[in-house]
Design a protein around this nucleic acid. Structure first.
Lengths: 148, 148
DNA sequence: GTAGTTGCAAAGGGTTTGCAGAGGG
DNA sequence: CCCTCTGCAAACCCTTTGCAACTAC
């Protein structure tokens, strides 16, 4: 989900990552980040490759995977694993947590946030003596359009 | 999770599947189901292979995948997909839904059920005009043992 | 210049499929 | 007997890795 954050802010976050890790700011990294910013997320590595190739012709899939791994580790992106096939999709992390509703017919993904669920999760973790790090919640169903 | 259901009941469900689909009741299928019943679930296909080979020496991994696919489709088993690697684990479906807490250190899986979360999920689906079919919720954290 | 970065191609891990022989009903 | 099931091996898909050329700084 792209929130209020601007592309300039995302570039600044990339700059931070680059500086803090002694990395370099390559066109490929910027272009992949741009694709993630421009589209409203939920893209597979291959979709990202195809979109980013419009900006960086000749871009390789290995670079996409390496960049997605870096940006996820550094918190600029989030990945969502899907049920069956084990493949992942990526979306921009703009600082606001949310969960996903997924249409099993058309594969559309809708984001939502629910305070009640967030609180309850924390309580469940505590009652099982777990130190909660992360969570993922996916609701699978049929969207309004596909019900017709 | 193995609930109140008996192995005899599971065998009867297998019998149903076999009859309704014009299949045959092989030793391999029974042995795989037995492994899923005996262990308290959350096994990878390879773990299932190793355990089932004690009963059916020479069992092949392809048969394990085929059987797991069949038993999941017919509702005797559930699969849980894990975050990163895209691999799946299987557990017995004894009719009671539950969600999972996963320790990111030792990979232990703890099951829980929360009525509040179940209800809230239904409300969220309705408010987005989704017809809810299924859901998956995973809480990742560090378990009591690994916190020490 | 000297790292870090890239694209390619090969390797990897998990899963699926084609096939000939074995085995239920 | 017929049709399904099995084990093997090859094929597959997605992802990762090794490497020489390349690029940012």
């Amino acid at each position: 989900m792209r929130g209020k954050i601007s592309y300039q802010d995302m570039l600044a976050r990339l700059e931070q990552v680059v500086i803090q890790n002694n990395l370099k700011r390559s066109k490929q990294r910027e272009d992949i980040l741009f694709v993630m910013y421009e589209t409203h997320g939920h893209l597979s590595p291959e979709e990202i490759l195809n979109l980013a190739r419009e900006l960086s012709p000749g871009l390789g899939i290995a670079t996409v995977y390496r960049t997605l791994g870096l940006l996820e580790k550094e918190g600029l992106l989030d990945s969502i694993a899907f049920g069956g096939d084990g493949s992942k999709k990526y979306e921009l992390n703009c600082g606001e947590h949310h969960d996903h509703l997924i249409c099993v017919e058309c594969k559309k993904i809708v984001e939502f946030y629910d305070d009640n669920i967030e609180k309850t999760q924390e309580e469940i973790a505590i009652s099982h003596h777990f130190l909660l790090k992360n969570h993922s919640m996916k609701l699978y169903g049929i969207c309004e359009t596909c019900q017709k």
